[in-house]
């Protein structure tokens, strides 16, 4: 079927509609020093309706970044600290018996917000994680006999700490797969660290101002959905995903022993969505291979299972993804 999208017109539309990106970046920049990659990933998740899992050692401004993003958007924000004694009802809500009215009344949990910060998600047992992940998948929760729609936009930003694994409940692969992106937060550079230090010793606590409304995000998402994705890019995405499943067929037989399972179809879907959002952030109405490469590691790293051999040889999923990207031909 012939595509009828006018790319020039779309480019113009995107240029005008994406002006808020600069505003958000400016507001985030007031609070977060450095961590441009993390902020960009948060924006991608926000624009493509995908949940994000942030992983990094403590003190890298993961929680602060999410907090600031919620602050920059005039949206309802809930922070849930995941602890071992947390119950699903603490998250989604429960039915409470009112003695006055002599009936059960619904008390909605903190999940009824636009932005959910699931802090240290791996500290709670599987039943709580499942309750959250069900809400992420369905965009609704069931309390008693009634299902309640979650507000739009609904974005879960979960954090987990790669160290201190004692007493944690690692997310099962099937549940990790529901996160669109898994972002690894690294240390700031020396210059950035100096700026952080200066800001903190001044005792200044900069705060973000709300520059957007949730409706603006919903509108922006519609524009992102219009970003043109050529069939060549679709082929490129599927080639990357298939190379993770059947490395032998892509001349990557050296990786075959390191991959226990390849990326799921969600990887292809999320890669296309994330590439569109990335193109939008770059003010483009069409996706180019650069966009796919930019988001590929964040989309695939938690979807490629490694074997014991890979772990023994200190080969990470990112090494595998980089090898795939360096081998799969660019259209």
């Amino acid at each position: 079927m012939e595509e009828t999208t006018d790319i020039r017109e779309l480019n113009e539309r995107i240029k005008s509609e994406s002006s808020f990106v600069d505003l958000i970046n400016m507001e985030m920049g007031k609070v977060i020093i450095g961590q441009k990659k993390m902020v960009e990933s948060l924006m991608i998740g926000l624009l493509s309706d995908g949940h994000i899992l942030l992983e990094g050692v403590p003190g890298l401004a993961k929680t602060l970044a999410i907090n600031s993003l919620a602050g920059a958007i005039d949206a309802k924000f809930s922070r849930i600290q995941f602890t071992p004694d947390l119950l699903p009802a603490d998250l989604i809500g429960t039915m409470i018996y009112s003695q006055k009215k002599e009936e059960f009344a619904v008390r909605k949990g903190p999940i009824f917000a636009n932005f959910i910060l699931a802090d240290e998600i791996n500290r709670s047992p599987a039943k709580v994680q499942s309750a959250l992940l069900e809400a992420m998948q369905e965009n609704q929760v069931t309390i008693g006999d009634t299902s309640y729609k979650l507000p739009s936009p609904f974005l879960v930003l979960a954090t987990q700490n790669p160290i201190e694994q004692e007493g944690t409940y690692p997310l099962p692969e099937a549940q990790v797969d529901r996160f669109m992106l898994k972002v690894i937060v690294g240390y700031p550079s020396k210059e950035e660290e100096k700026l952080i230090l200066r800001q903190q010793i001044k005792n200044e606590k900069p705060k973000t101002n709300a520059v957007l409304k949730p409706e603006d995000i919903v509108k922006a998402r519609a524009v992102v959905n219009d970003v043109y994705l050529d069939e060549k890019i679709e082929n490129y995405i599927t080639d990357i995903v298939f190379a993770s499943r059947f490395p032998d067929k892509y001349g990557l037989s050296n990786l075959a022993g390191y991959i226990s399972y390849g990326a799921s179809p969600r990887a292809s879907i999320f890669m296309a969505k994330a590439a569109r959002a990335y193109a939008f952030l770059k003010r483009r109405g069409y996706v180019i291979p650069e966009d796919v490469r930019a988001i590929c590691a964040d989309v695939m790293r938690h979807r490629v299972g490694l074997t014991y051999e890979a772990e023994a040889e200190n080969i990470t999923s990112v090494d595998v993804i980089n090898e795939i990207l360096n081998t799969v031909e660019v259209p």
Binding site: T5, I7, Y228, D230, K232, I233, Y286, P331
Partner: peptide, 8 residues
């Protein structure tokens, strides 16, 4: 790139 990916 424009021709291949943006119908230019």
């Amino acid at each position: 790139d424009l021709v291949k990916f943006a119908k230019y």
